[in-house]
Design a protein around this nucleic acid. Structure first.
Lengths: 251, 251
DNA sequence: CACTTTATCTCGTGA
DNA sequence: TCACGAGGTAAAGTG
């Protein structure tokens, strides 16, 4: 086996790796770098999870472990975007050697959850330093849609005036509250992608609450790029309205 | 740079890697193995996504690319469980060299989405063969809870009879439909973790729909390990009921 | 395909 | 900390 790193005395290296290391060598690199680097481990392993639910990967099989300095811990297999087992951040990684086998224990405090991995065959271990993008931004979110309507309410309807945004009620927060040209209160619920029954239900809940509280008629408008046909029936049954808006057209 | 693999003529190797490769060398390994192996790429890169939404990682920074044979494509940073950018399977990976820079393009067909990554500094590339667990099972899911109630309805209430499971309605699918000892229809909605207002709303929707359709009184019971106080108020306000059940106690 | 719901959802935000 | 809702949700199941 061959240890390779690009060390100078000044700085910790960005990249270190071990090929077919002994458990001891692997353990040393993991413990040395787990709090600053992303650790990658490739080998034959079994794994086990217990916490909010419970699951077991008892077949010894080549898998990939990824540990991040924030406590993210993942066991990936050959398919799927999601790891097969994981602990979300913040969790704590404990590495040890049990009966000669490299053993990883990721512990999440609350809720208490544990992922345990045993790696009898270690093919590869690496520690790499990764960056974090600041001011990360996604365009075309629901918030962008709400903003666009605030700055131009006629997207929804001519004569509409926006009264409030994120209007808090006992039954939830209303995306936008407005008044139409005839003076009716209008509840607006926005969705960035196709609306389903839950979205209609949400709108209905707000409208019912407000019309009861204000004891007058309240309109409800669902704003989304599309709506499922069942949801549309449901919406019309309760006298609610749908307004088609593409969030991407507003970017 | 140093190419290392454990090749014999018989079989493709489970592990290959390149340290500080040229773009050409990296490209070769990627194209050779992308359909069978998980590809790991560590280097300084920028990335870009456009599809359902849009986002850009324009700062050149060390990141980790993971590509799986099923088309999963992820760009990971130093924190978070979720990749910063990704394409879910099935997507297609195209690798090329543009103006001397290794460029990856992951394309998802429907909805049309593209992730593009440019890697001017390639520190490390690896291809590893991973397994897939068959008969994978999680214990303590909502389905387990529903099953437990089907085989022993008294968990919810003495004298309860289960009539149907996954009962389809226009407003959605009802987890369990039952009849109580007095002959009333009972809608049961199960949650494996704490119930919030949305769960109550869901139950209310089913109960309203059924009581309208059957034109008689219908009870609604929310079964969950706990319920938020706001949700409980809301539940009681509509005459619905809550039954505390720990899904883990049923494993 | 489209539709619906679950999830060890994760993640951000605001009380 | 907890509660709540969005998410490029992903993944699974059904018609």
């Amino acid at each position: 086996m061959d240890i390779t790193s690009f060390m100078n005395r000044e700085a910790t290296p960005d990249l270190e790796y071990l090929v077919d290391p002994s458990p001891t060598e692997a353990l040393r690199l993991i413990n040395l770098r787990k709090s600053t680097h992303v650790i990658l481990i490739y080998g034959d392993m079994t794994a086990f999870y217990e916490g909010r639910a419970k699951s077991q990967l008892e077949d010894l099989m080549p898998r990939l472990v990824i540990s991040k300095p924030d406590g993210t811990f993942m066991v990936h297999e050959s398919n799927k975007e999601k790891p097969r087992l994981w602990n979300p951040p913040p969790s704590t990684l404990y590495a040890s050697i049990n009966l000669g086998v490299l053993t990883l224990r990721s512990v999440r405090a609350s809720p208490r959850e544990v992922v345990m991995v045993e790696i009898p065959v270690i093919r590869f271990v690496s520690a790499v330093r990764l960056g974090i993008t600041l001011n990360y931004r996604v365009f075309g979110t629901e918030e962008d849609l709400v903003n666009a309507i605030v700055s131009n309410p006629s997207i929804v309807e001519d004569g509409l005036q926006i009264i409030a945004r994120e209007y808090h009620t006992i039954v939830g927060d209303i995306d936008l509250l407005g008044k139409d040209s005839k003076g009716n209160l209008v509840v607006i619920e926005c969705k960035r992608s196709q609306a389903g029954p839950e979205a209609v239900n949400q709108l209905k809940r707000y409208v019912e609450h407000l019309s009861q509280k204000e004891s007058k008629n309240v309109r409800g408008i669902l704003v989304a790029p599309s709506i499922s046909s069942a949801a549309y029936h449901y919406l019309r049954q309760y006298g609610l309205e749908f307004r088609r808006v593409e969030p991407k057209s507003l970017i």
